[in-house]
Design a protein around this nucleic acid. Structure first.
Ligand code: MN
Ligand code: MN
Ligand code: ZN
Ligand code: ZN
Lengths: 140, 140
DNA sequence: ATTATTTTGCAACAAAGTTGCATCTGTTTA
DNA sequence: TAAACAGATGCAACTTTGTTGCAAAATAAT
């Protein structure tokens, strides 16, 4: 785990600092997505709010994490699993929001479908967000 | 136009007030979606910010407008075309964001596809947001 | 026209996000 | 390994966005 964190930072030519290590650990030990607030809470207010913002921004630019649009328009972040790089995101999988437990997760195995657009429209990216009950919450 | 506005308000048992008429007009004379900020600007700061928030909230509850999730997590609103009512939205169409001109619009004729979820997951709603170049911007 | 009900604007507040700058930390080089 | 450098952090101050309570104003009902 420690190694994984260091690897990711080195691979992206980022200096290894307390906040980056800690925040990256949070993402690795968590299956769901994290909001900015979650991160602040779970780092035990160890880092300044500004540092968290800037760290997330750096991770986004480097293609280490991606944002997830949600129906309530809160900003969520999740690890990129694939080969995303600086300015090159290709996380074309479906996102799932459980209305029961509130977790938002990447369904890495569910690829986004092809959408037939009206004449004249060209797409570059398709985002799919599914709401419902997750696996765990249905097991009752 | 004036009539359409009055009709919608009456049909939803809403009293006819300056802000409601003006904001509804904005939506009717516009093909794309509007952000809260757009509305404030285009009403010429005629109404208090709080009034705009409350008006949009009322319209949302009544099923006159719906929100659109976007990749940059800004809140956008658009008219419901269908038979949405109080607490009953069924705007299951695809949304399109033009990266060129910035407009976000409802593709009312493009219905959201069925998504095959992993075992154990149940869905209640599927949101699809497509980014790309719109019809108008491709006409060059 | 009078009354009852909603809606509005204001003020005060809370939450979320940004920016500049001095200080500190991690990395590089000699 | 120590000094020098580049980059990251924390703080303060600020902006933007959204919320709440309440009195005044506008709308609807009688
Ligand atoms: Mn994802
Ligand atoms: Mn729509
Ligand atoms: Zn769940
Ligand atoms: Zn366009």
């Amino acid at each position: 785990m420690q190694e994984a964190v260091q690897d990711i930072l080195k691979k992206n030519q980022l200096s290894i600092t307390g906040s980056r290590v800690k925040i990256l650990e949070l993402f690795l030990e968590q299956q769901g997505a994290l909001a900015h607030g979650d991160i602040e809470r779970r780092t035990g207010e160890k880092f300044d709010r500004v540092t968290v913002y800037r760290t997330l921004q750096v991770f986004l630019n480097k293609g280490i994490i991606h944002t997830i649009p949600t129906s309530d328009n809160s900003v969520l972040y999740a690890l990129c699993k694939d080969d995303c790089g600086e300015g090159h995101h290709h996380d074309n999988h479906v996102h799932f929001v459980c209305d029961d437990c509130g977790t938002t997760m990447c369904l890495d195995d569910v690829t986004v479908p092809v959408i037939r657009l009206p004449k004249g429209f060209k797409f570059t990216q398709i985002q799919v967000v599914v709401n419902g009950r997750c696996k765990d919450c249905n097991r009752d």
